[in-house]
Amino acid sequence: MASAWIALALSLKVALWATAIDLVLGVAAGFALARLRFPGRELVDSILLLPMVLPPTVLGYYLLVVVGRHGWLGAWLESRFDIRLIFTWQGAVIAAAIVGFPFVCKSARAAFEAVDVQYEQAAKVLGLGATAVFARVTLPLAWRGILAGVLLAFARALGEFGATLMVAGSIPGETQTLSIAVYEAVQAGQDELANVLVLMTSLACIAVLLLAGRLAPARIAGRS
């Protein structure tokens, strides 16, 4: 069962990195969508949400085409820095970050929109600069909503399967995450290993969801 723990550790590593990337990019995008007025804002919003509704195989194919060795980005990365993303855990991070991104972006946008502008204006009148207003007023008021989205992104990244399998393959100890290990165990008829892996995955996801439920304001979490 050592392989199960290795898969769990790898899944956590990939999901943590992916969530960190989502946190930075998702909060920035959510803030921009909430506060900036520009033509095509809703179109941008829809495009950023796409990973939530697109089949993972479609995302996997896009990634293969873009970051593969013959893709425009992949070819450039390899010739410039000798970086290959396909079949590496970093490739799995990219796949997981993309599927988790909409959760952070969407909840960050909603959280920022819910912040009363009067507090920000008051802070400004009292002499705070724009950065300080964001760091000391806006973000503290919005962080609960953002955090709930971050946890959902983490859970989604933990469970990511389709795009990861296409982009990162299934190399034990390197790119074989929990969900892929489950798939392989079932394919090979190793039901005992599959049982252990499935339990592990379920427990990890329940823990994350419980945490998300506690952090999210009741109204948003859909519990009255």
Binding site: M52, P102, F103, K106, S107, A110, A148, G149, L152, A155, R156, G159, A216, R219, I220, A221, G222
Partner: peptide, 11 residues
């Protein structure tokens, strides 16, 4: 993760 999409869209 259906609950997740409700979570974002509902409000």
């Amino acid at each position: 993760m259906h609950c997740a999409s409700d979570f974002v869209v509902a409000p």
